[in-house]
Write a protein that binds this DNA or RNA. Sequence first.
DNA 1: TGCAAGGTCAACCTTTGGGTGGACCCTGGC
DNA 2: GCCAGGGTCCACCCAAAGGTTGACCTTGCA
Lengths: 216, 216
Amino acid sequence: MTAEPIRVLVVEDHHVVRQGLVALLSVADGLEVVGQAADGVEAITQFRKHQPAITLIDLRLPRLSGVDVIERIRMESPGARFIVLTTYDGDEDIYRALQAGARSYLLKGMTSEELIAAIRTVHAGRQHIPPAVAQRLAERVGTEELTQREFDVLEQIVHGKSNKEIAVELLISEATVKTHINSLLSKLGVSDRTQAATAAIQRGIIPLESLPRQRQ
Amino acid sequence: MTAEPIRVLVVEDHHVVRQGLVALLSVADGLEVVGQAADGVEAITQFRKHQPAITLIDLRLPRLSGVDVIERIRMESPGARFIVLTTYDGDEDIYRALQAGARSYLLKGMTSEELIAAIRTVHAGRQHIPPAVAQRLAERVGTEELTQREFDVLEQIVHGKSNKEIAVELLISEATVKTHINSLLSKLGVSDRTQAATAAIQRGIIPLESLPRQRQ
DNA sequence: TGCAAGGTCAACCTTTGGGTGGACCCTGGC
DNA sequence: GCCAGGGTCCACCCAAAGGTTGACCTTGCA
């Protein structure tokens, strides 16, 4: 193991986690952390500057999401390889990250050995998807994709709006809202709006952070 | 700063985060990491063994929650001082942790300087609550506490049950379910079950992990 | 003893939500 | 030119949810 070290960029907004990753990777041999970033925009800057072989990236980042970062970088550097490292395990997040071009999806509970093994595997040009994640992804297949409009309506449902309010918000009639709801309920495999709301949050279709902080 | 170092126990299930914390604290002077634990049960064992001055603890832990750990340890060692360190910022989590006896509540986005400052402050016998957390806590005051039964009903709502199903589940009549719902809607300050469900998740009253993974 | 709070239930009413079937329009692809 | 898919809308129906009032019982506390 004395060849060129694998050059790694670490993108993670939580300071202690980033420090932990860097500390872990620094002691592994055959690896070299060439840069760090704490948000999406900085990630792109650092990537351009260092051209790392592997980018370790969190999904939820300030300024620009992890998925957006992956997509943008891959447009200019198709050979870039990404390992997503996150606490979130919603089907939707996993799907979008892999769709964007990530080669591996790890949860933060993993050990350093697993992380380093994943880096080597991805660097060798292969994918590395842990069984638990593969399982979650498999559950998603067969699920029909929501249309843009259905997504809009679902978002309003999660925000607690009534059909009438959704109609006003989206500038359509209440009848149309009902049409979309019927369609979206069957696509999500649920039977009412409350189940739709919790399923949307659980699967990561509608991020919880988008909820306005209500009071009173 | 050559007096006795502050003896710290780190309790955190995510491996990389724990490593990060230990790495951060090890370089700070006046501090000494005397133990680590990856779950609640181990946390208690480690506490008894090392009797640390400060315990840095995550809330969501395998086997035994952070709040439970704090409560149990404080029963046998009332002088124990806890700093909660978590990614979750639901009002309910903050409230319960402080209620259980935590002296500080930090979010993982904080810097190492903030963390170390918090440790020194708490070790000196004072509290350390960042403004953002204090704000969240303040929003909670005036909110009426749910009764046990209202909580049960709310939990079922979040799980997507209809009033009739809830009645069967809790062995009460549908009329009673409605009574509880009416009461709980007004306490939560929302106007229908869907809003109640998302509010419950957002505030951490009902943990998202409790949701069964539905499919089809 | 009395009272408040919580839990239980009922009757009644209004509004909302979900199910079905059909209609029209537009757009993009074959 | 036709068709499929998506978006829009309507009418009709029934079930579910929410609002209100009042009642009874138990427990615990003043």
